[in-house]
Design a protein around this nucleic acid. Structure first.
Lengths: 126, 126
DNA sequence: GCCGATATATTGTGCAGCGATATATTAATC
DNA sequence: GATTAATATATCGCTGCACAATATATCGGC
């Protein structure tokens, strides 16, 4: 296990959930993940972000690597372990809960502001 | 304006959206925000996080302060400016979009993993 | 006088995410 | 055969968010 992370921020670790979720669909190698996430229109995942993240997840036993020798540079395929599936279940559920609470505040506010974009200065106008 | 922030991470700035959204409902002072967020079951907002955040938003002209002299320590009420409303509109909309893309990946994966929590080792069982 | 609650604020630290860079392999282009 | 581009993994240093710790101020209750 890597040292206890300080992931306290509201949606810190959402990248972990994203990667775990993709791997739940089947093994992937890093470069393919980069392209996949970029193509899906999701927040562009950078190589300098992904590879350390994969190493962390591997160190935590959530994913396990297999080298594939193809033409060109060899690919490192990552497979979700049972521990990884468990982590995905928990983290994704936590994420859903946090999301719901967040949405309960944001959606009404968004509606309110969208409906009244620039409230009049004149109190008689209300 | 403060120098261009490096807010690139997936849901970085979600705290900003949360605070802006609450302020869209009416002016609040810092300590009340702390209690409000904690009571709402949302990720507990810490004083060491909130006050610098409020100062940043004030410096960016998104909110404007008014001191209230009450019994006890004076309160600093923050009101959403028109610029703040505009920022909320945009940031919350961006947030919704990012969310939808994220959910499109996470929800199916969560269902899949929940339905097959521990796939059998025996290939003949498939 | 002291403690606890209320209330704002600053300082130092940990670390996630990123830009920049390095490295390896192959195919295409010059 | 040198150069470029695409594929593919990896590391290092920087920035800035969020937090713990701490300081400060005012009031009420003991």
């Amino acid at each position: 296990m890597s040292p206890v992370p300080n992931r306290k921020s509201l949606f810190h670790g959402s990248l972990d959930v994203l990667v775990l979720a993709i791997l739940a669909d089947g093994p992937q190698y890093g470069y393919a993940l980069l392209k996949k996430v970029a193509d899906a229109g999701n927040h562009e995942l950078k190589a300098g972000t992904l590879y350390p993240l994969l190493h962390r997840m591997e160190a935590d036993g959530l994913i396990t690597p297999t080298w594939e020798k193809t033409t060109g540079r060899p690919r490192k395929w990552y497979t979700l372990t049972p521990a990884g599936q468990k982590a995905l279940t928990k983290q994704a559920a936590d994420w859903q809960a946090a999301l719901a609470r967040m949405q309960a505040v944001v959606l009404p506010a968004l509606r309110r502001v969208t409906r009244f974009p620039d409230p009049p200065m004149n109190p008689a106008a209300g």
